[in-house]
């Protein structure tokens, strides 16, 4: 078994073996899906129209923003990265393997949601299936990049919670997941444009579901792509082997550069 396969296999199994990861990768998003499916279908029938993309984005947020960074910070604090370095495990593998395996877990969750939502809740299935798959991967990529960046700049596991919630909660509230983006006040709408969830929802609606997008979805594609690339590049640049996370190539504030595409979106859209 080569190094890539061995590392990928270990990280994927960890996502199931570790109870916290299992909860955040599967139980929380699927539980929320079931709960919201029954509740929101009663309270807000329009929610059903966007249910599949919204719940898939919730799953992505849970897996990449809430779940992905913490084990990485804990591993760094425990000196595991030092063992990795001594044994030739490159930084790029340490960062990308958990991201790739988390995305694979999200694929499983997305398949469950996409297959069951039309049956149980009458949610419309995607119209453009190829686009749906590609935009799912794009949304997962952009969010996983932010998750990586959080793990790299966080000084401790407590700091991870702060940064993760700073993205997760606004995404749930103003990312167009529970309420349509068009219903948000202008100011909140502008703030929402800083979130990858808003753009992911816009892309799914406009290009995969054949629904009315809140703004040009091609801009959202570009913003998610640029945001994801910048996030991964910055995470790799700012990565630190040291368990105290002190010796790095740049200041952690450099991570803010990853928000640049989203800021451009606020200006242009």
């Amino acid at each position: 078994m080569n190094a890539f396969a061995s590392h990928f296999s270990f990280e994927f199994r960890t996502g199931i073996r570790d109870k916290t990861l299992l909860l955040m990768n599967y139980l929380f998003p699927l539980g929320l899906y079931g709960l919201l499916g029954f509740l929101m279908a009663e309270l807000n029938p329009d929610f059903v129209e966007t249910m599949i993309p919204a719940m898939i984005i919730v799953a992505i947020l849970s897996g990449t923003i809430l779940s992905l960074p913490n084990p990485l910070v804990a591993a760094r604090e425990a000196g595991i990265f030092r063992s990795y370095k001594i044994n030739g495990v490159p930084a790029i593998s340490i960062l990308t393997m958990p991201a790739l395996t988390t995305i694979l877990h999200m694929v499983v969750v997305a398949v469950i949601i996409t297959a069951t939502a039309p049956l149980f809740f009458g949610a419309p299935a995607p119209v453009n299936w190829l686009g749906f798959i590609l935009f799912f991967l794009l949304a997962a990529f952009a969010h996983a990049g932010l998750g990586m960046l959080i793990s790299v700049i966080s000084s401790s596991t407590r700091a991870v919670v702060l940064w993760s919630q700073l993205i997760f909660l606004p995404s749930m509230l103003i990312g167009g997941l529970m309420l349509p983006y068009s219903m948000l006040p202008d100011v909140l709408g502008k703030v929402g444009l800083l979130l990858p969830a808003t753009h992911a929802m816009n892309v799914f609606q406009g290009l995969a579901q054949n629904q009315v997008a809140a703004f040009d979805p091609l801009w959202s594609v570009l913003i998610l792509l640029a945001g994801g690339i910048l996030s991964f590049a910055l995470a790799n640049y700012l990565f630190c082997w040291d368990s105290r996370n002190t010796t790095r190539r740049g200041h952690p504030a450099l991570a803010l550069v990853a928000l640049l595409p989203y800021v451009v979106g606020v200006v242009l859209l």
Binding site: A3, F10, D18, A75, V89
Partner: peptide
């Protein structure tokens, strides 16, 4: 190392495969 530093969820046989693979 003084502190062993392997991931908590890594199994014994997995650890051997993992690091052997990175050493080729």
């Amino acid at each position: 190392l003084q502190t062993s530093g392997l991931p908590d969820s890594m199994r014994v046989d997995e650890a051997m495969r993992f690091f052997a693979a990175y050493h080729g």
